[in-house]
């Protein structure tokens, strides 16, 4: 891995880039620096935003500046110890039945296997919460098994309901909003990522691990959102 590149962003941030392509070692370094800054913030630190290959350190320009933050980051980077597998493990239920898994047949056709094999592959995956992005609670999970990795659809499909389990390339996520998406919709989860619990508003922390567990349609009845449309609806 090349030495990290530190780039100033406007008057209030430094972008720390550990690489340019997504890679496990690069992401481990991102998480290690994220942990280090969480435990021991640099003076003036406002927030730290981890992503796939880089992390943004936002600071208050009224109390510090890029040079001071860069110097503080350099000392954190010198002591950095990437450690794997520290995150919590979550089990997330998924229903693949009927219209909840509306794209399963298309994924199976492109992967050259049966729908059941797609489901088995998805369930066999060991997923990591790599980052949140896009919108509140959109946790990008890496670890989709190779046989069911597909590029996203040529055009987004509108109105994909909140709670959808969607995949594209090596990534999987459980949506929190009803939105257009070009990812493949393979199931629905009754587990809200936005928990509604003020003490722990987001189900996952970046760095956590996730396994999916198959459930039937019954598991989606009476979920706390109460807004999940019936299969075939929406």
């Amino acid at each position: 891995m090349t030495p990290p590149r530190l780039t100033p962003v406007a008057e209030r941030a430094v972008l720390v880039e550990f690489g340019t392509v997504v890679d496990a070692a690069v992401h481990a370094a991102v998480l290690a620096l994220d942990r280090a800054l969480g435990a021991d913030p640099v003076p003036g630190q406002v927030e730290v935003v981890p992503a796939m290959v880089n992390l943004l350190v936002v600071f208050d320009p009224l109390v510090t500046d890029h040079a001071a933050v860069r110097a503080a980051l350099a000392s954190r980077l010198a002591d950095l110890v990437p450690e794997a597998g520290q995150g919590a493990v979550h089990e997330v239920p998924v229903c693949y039945d009927g219209a909840f898994g509306r794209d399963l047949a298309a994924v199976a056709a492109q992967a050259g296997c049966s729908v059941e094999a797609v489901i088995a592959a998805h369930l066999a995956g060991e997923y990591h919460v790599a980052m949140y992005g896009f919108a509140p609670g959109y946790a990008y999970l890496t670890g989709v098994p190779e046989p069911i990795r597909l590029p996203r659809k040529p055009a987004p499909v509108r109105g994909v309901p909140a709670g959808s389990v969607i995949i594209a390339a090596g990534q999987c996520l459980v949506t929190t909003l009803t939105m257009p998406t070009g990812w493949w919709v393979i199931g629905r989860s009754p587990t809200p990522i936005l928990t509604g619990d003020p003490a722990r508003p987001f189900l996952f922390a970046v760095g956590d691990r996730v396994r999916f567990r198959r459930v039937g349609v019954d598991a989606l009845a009476g979920t706390q959102s109460g807004a999940l449309p019936a299969p075939g609806g929406a």
């Binding site: 992503a51 796939m52 992005g133």
Partner: peptide, 10 residues
């Protein structure tokens, strides 16, 4: 296709 990365207002 740069990896998705954090952005700021502005």
């Amino acid at each position: 296709a740069i990896p998705s990365e954090p952005v700021l207002r502005g």
